[in-house]
Design a protein around this nucleic acid. Sequence first.
DNA 1: TAACGCATGTAACAGGTTACATGATTTA
DNA 2: TAAATCATGTAACCTGTTACATGCGTTA
Lengths: 175, 175
Amino acid sequence: MKGKEVILGILKSGPHTGYEINDILQTRLNHFFDATFGMIYPTLKKLESEGLVVKQTIVQTDKPNKNIYQITELGSKSFDEALIEPTSDEIFKSDLLMRLYFSAYLPDEEVIKFLDEEIFRKTLQLESLQERLAEWLSDGMTSTQQITFDYGIATYTAALTVLKSAKEKILTKSM
Amino acid sequence: MKGKEVILGILKSGPHTGYEINDILQTRLNHFFDATFGMIYPTLKKLESEGLVVKQTIVQTDKPNKNIYQITELGSKSFDEALIEPTSDEIFKSDLLMRLYFSAYLPDEEVIKFLDEEIFRKTLQLESLQERLAEWLSDGMTSTQQITFDYGIATYTAALTVLKSAKEKILTKSM
DNA sequence: TAACGCATGTAACAGGTTACATGATTTA
DNA sequence: TAAATCATGTAACCTGTTACATGCGTTA
């Protein structure tokens, strides 16, 4: 599923502005999908031109005007078809692992720096995911959505364990 | 690190053809980087035009001719600079989790199908990674390369555990 | 005889990123 | 008064994907 289908999927649960779509993407789907406004707005425009969504502009005086997008029947059908397609491979690219792969002649402190950068990021991501869970649960979370959450926690935790143990090994070695 | 730096990094350990570079990428770096010939050959061409690598053509009669690429001093310097840059975020996109997120109104058997697809893929990837380890070790594996391996095993294993338990939960529920 | 290994490449396209541009209101 | 929230969008660019095109020798 590309940006197009993802946005359609979000609009299936109700009309939203591009801004709100971004918000959903940055919270609930953040750990397995990346989104930017630079992708969201052009995609909405394209979706509209294809008749998969319709736009309604709300004029506001205190805040900027907003465009509320609603999925059409055509859009809904298009999403349903995409939803039952066979899943495609997960995409994983790690700059950290790439550096480690090539780090043979790098001093230990550089390697530690790389590890720390990722430990820092992953710790934040794990915390943020756990914090969001409470809010998510009160909003209503389906059982399959619960799996996406468990998956995120499990893989972040597993990665952190490896990284911390790798760091320890280097530190004890150099003493 | 993009394709450009990755290829330079591989060429730092010795001259290689595009075909060989693909082979290294598909085995040792496969679990954290994706490569295709459609990316490798154009990148080598660009690298050559920038003076970061030089090409030597070997004429062969029984097999197609091959182009052996060697890194230049400029290329080597360029790679060294990229290597010590701060690492960037890992990229993870999961089509499976996207489907699960949107699967609320899908029948259980569809959800099971998605889970099975990923369980199948991840099982293969995990086995293939473990099989490659033996060969890799005999070729010589640095301690930081060992971390990339551990990381792969740990995250695949954690993901599989979640997926299998999610599947079991659905199966017992519907009985 | 089908598939796999060896070996290289191009062209069109898709998809998304980055940077830029704007601007009022509210909160810390 | 600085930062965050709300709110939208464009244009240039980058990077990589997909499909196509070729072809011999070896192995199953």
